[in-house]
């Protein structure tokens, strides 16, 4: 049983890392488009949307690299868990406020992902991140 757990942790860690690496890189390519996605949430002022669009993708990339390599993976997993928890709250707020927007999680301007789909996906990622955090790089 223990080897299965060991491999499961490694697979989840690398998978989670690769996903965040991908999510970050495609946002870095077009920061203005991502700023538009952030603006859709109607929370920040104009310049704030650009600031988040400039920084958040790099947090995702760094966390992705750390998770894939396994170096400081627990910290990266904790940060990913926190980010996902925040994203879930944010997505719930769009449902409550009646905003029918694309979550902007991955490709900007691509196929629309509804809030409920994104909430489900982020919950899965949150569970995976907590699992990796608890198990570390063991």
């Amino acid at each position: 049983m223990e080897p299965v757990k060991k491999h499961l942790t490694a697979v989840l860690r690398v998978g989670l890392g690769a996903l965040f690496l991908y999510a970050g890189v495609i946002k870095i390519i077009n920061p203005a488009a991502f700023a538009g996605s952030v603006a859709n949430y109607q929370i920040l002022p104009y310049a704030g949307n650009y600031l988040v669009a400039a920084i958040l993708p790099w947090v995702e990339v760094i966390c992705g690299v750390l998770l894939v390599t396994g170096w400081r993976a627990r910290s990266a997993a904790a940060l990913v868990a926190l980010m996902n928890a925040f994203f879930i709250v944010l997505l719930f707020s769009t449902v409550v406020r009646g905003l029918d927007i694309d979550c902007g999680c991955f490709k900007q301007g691509g196929e629309k992902t509804t809030a409920w789909t994104a909430i489900f996906r982020d919950t899965m990622l949150l569970v995976a991140a907590v699992f990796v955090y608890r198990k570390g790089t063991k």
């Binding site: 870095i28 203005a32 650009y50 947090v59 910290s75 940060l79």
Partner: peptide
């Protein structure tokens, strides 16, 4: 975690400074 965010902020702001 704070270090990750700060490094990301530094890189992100430097990378997008013109924008």
């Amino acid at each position: 975690m704070a270090a990750i965010v700060l490094i990301a902020a530094a890189i992100g702001i430097a990378f997008n400074h013109r924008l």
